[in-house]
Each structure stands twice: as structure tokens, then as C-alpha cells.
Amino acid sequence: MYDTTYYRASSVSDATSKLAGTEDGKFLAGGQTLIPTMKQRLAAPSDLVDVSGIDALKNISVDGDTVTIGAACTHAQVAGSSEVAQAIPALVSLASGIGDPAVRARGTIGGSIANNDPAADYPAACLGLGATIVTDSREVPADEFFVGMFETALEEGEMVTAVKFPKPAKAGYAKFPNPASRYAMVGVMAAQTANGVRVAVTGAGNDGVFRHSALEEALGANWSADAAQGVSTDAADMMADIHGSSEYRAHLVGVMAGRAVDNS
């Protein structure tokens, strides 16, 4: 690991102003992505501004039809939340399937979506449920937030503070884990929202998480696993690697969408 300067922020404004004053600083949340990258000498931030101790970012609240999860809430916190379990059980099941207990104890929702790993689970939740990403300066709909692999709409120095999830009528998540990393090889969030059926797919697409309009249409007409399985996905849009061909991933999208419906 290269030398870096660590700073523990006490508030959102403390964190953003601190980061603004650094040469090439980065926010640090659970460190489950950033620290391994630094240990492999693939990242060398001059400063780390730790946001995981900011109390205001660690709340989960349910207000009417909106579930708000603070950016520094850990995956374990979400997985164990009875409020979330009541409002959006699919989110609990998604969070409890991320990594292993150690990862879930440290990793945060803010870090996960800011990182936007193409195989991460939370981006599918945000996109599939039609969430709104709250930052220190604005609110961004999920449809505009996830731009491409490891790319988001976040500006330089902009900080995620919370994610607002509208409560769906029904939602289910199904994940096919990569055998080695156990990140999503294909993860599908399917939801009946106030604005119609939304289906988001992570792990499989060439450009990261995406909405699957053919599946949305099919499930909008008939909310069933069979309807999902009947929808084909173009293999040309899918990733291929040593774990699976693009044809296989395209096939799995249908299967996992069906299982997401079954889980809803």
C-alpha cells in the first residue's frame, strides 16, 4: 500500500470540505473495495476521508411509502432491519446475500453504489426499485445515476448521503453468484412499482447494471416466472469470461428473472 493520510470525518460538511482540500483524496466507507485495491497498489489516494463514523448517515427510516437508508448503513444493518423487512423484504434478502459476514459488517450501501461494480448487488436494487440517490448537493434518480461500469453521475467530490426506496407493491431479487467471487454473475431485481413493472439486471451486462425492457413488458402483462423465462436476452449485450459465456449469461437472465418473481 502506498502512503496515504487518513481523516475521520464528523459530519457531511466536514467530509466534503476536507476532501475538497486534498490533492487526490477519496471517501472511505466500509473499505471493502477501496482498501483491497490500495493493498494491491492499484489505487493511491493521497488522503482518505472516512465517512463511516458520521452518525447522520447511519439511519434507516420508513416514512409513508419511502424507505430511506443512510449511505453509511452496512449491509448487515440492512439485512437485520425489521423495518426494511416489513417494507421491502427483497432488499433484506439482497443485502444478506452480499459477500460474507465480515464484508457485510463493514461494507456500506453508499460505498457500493458509488463504486458501481458491474457485478454488485445494490445497483440492481436501486434501479429495479426506482430509488433516488441523495447526495450532499442534490437528488438523482437511479435511472440517471448508474452511467456505466464503475461510473456514476457523481461529480468530483460529491458524496452519497442516502438512498430513498419507494415501497413496491411486490418485489423479488434472485442472484446467481459467480462461483469464485460470489459477486453476481446474474442478479435480477423485479418489482411492481407505482410507475409499472421495473426489472434491473446486474452482473451480466457489458455496460454494467441495466433495465430490461422486454422483461418489464412481459412481466407487466403477466407477473409470472413462466412469462419471464419466455423472454430472450441478446447475448451480444452480455459479458463473457472464464466463468461463463455470454449465451449462458443471456439464458440466466431469464431464469433469474423468473426466480425473482417467485421470490416476490
Partner: peptide
């Protein structure tokens, strides 16, 4: 290509 446990499946 299988240079870490992200890709080498134990």
C-alpha cells in the same frame, strides 16, 4: 486470468 480468488475458485 485466474490470478486471484476473484477468479480462481477454491
Amino acid at each position: 486470468l485466474s490470478g486471484s480468488y476473484m477468479d480462481y475458485c477454491m
